[in-house]
Amino acid sequence: MIAHIFEDLCTGCNDCVSACPTHVLDASTDGGTPVIARLDQCQTCFMCELYCPTDAIFVGADQTGPESIDPEQVRASGLLGQMRRDHIWDAPDGDLAPLEEYWRLGPFLQEGARTAAERYARQHPPPAKEGA
């Protein structure tokens, strides 16, 4: 699950907000750091981390719920940006070869989004209408 957004690294570009298939993040109302608004919707797809151009997002791969992390320990660990480096997300000279397989994620992300939406609906049922 998304564990932390480093405000000092975030530029407020909102690429992470746009990339998240389950709408976990909300854009900041003041142009600053996005807000983790629906953590229970996170499916740990790493799209927010991959799309963050400044490596300001840390996703806890083994995290299954809200958990406290030590941001400075994460920063010192070298894990910030590791997903982007491992997948050569910022390939030099416009080389798209490392990204050729990412199109295959579409169906999995769509299934995850449906599952997350169903789970969210179960956990947050709409209020009953009066007189019904």
Rank of each mutant, 00 (worst) to 15 (best):
H87C: 10
T54G: 09
R114G: 00
R119S: 13
Q123E: 15
S18P: 11
Q82Y: 01
R122A: 06
A56L: 07
L99G: 02
G131R: 04
Q82T: 00
C45N: 05
G94I: 07
F46Y: 15
H87W: 15
P66T: 09
P98N: 08
G12Q: 10
C13G: 13
L39Q: 00
L39C: 05
G65M: 09
I57L: 14
V74W: 08
I36M: 03
H124E: 10
K129Y: 13
P34G: 07
L9G: 09
E130Y: 05
L79I: 03
P66H: 15
D70P: 11
D90R: 09
V59L: 05
I69P: 03
S68Q: 01
R75G: 03
Q110W: 08
D86S: 10
T64K: 13
C20R: 05
I69R: 02
Q123L: 13
F108Y: 10
P71F: 12
D93V: 06
I2R: 11
A37I: 05
P53M: 13
I36L: 02
E111M: 03
D15R: 14
A27E: 02
C13R: 14
Y102A: 02
A3C: 12
F6N: 12
D30R: 07
A37P: 11
L79W: 06
Q63S: 14
H124C: 13
I57S: 09
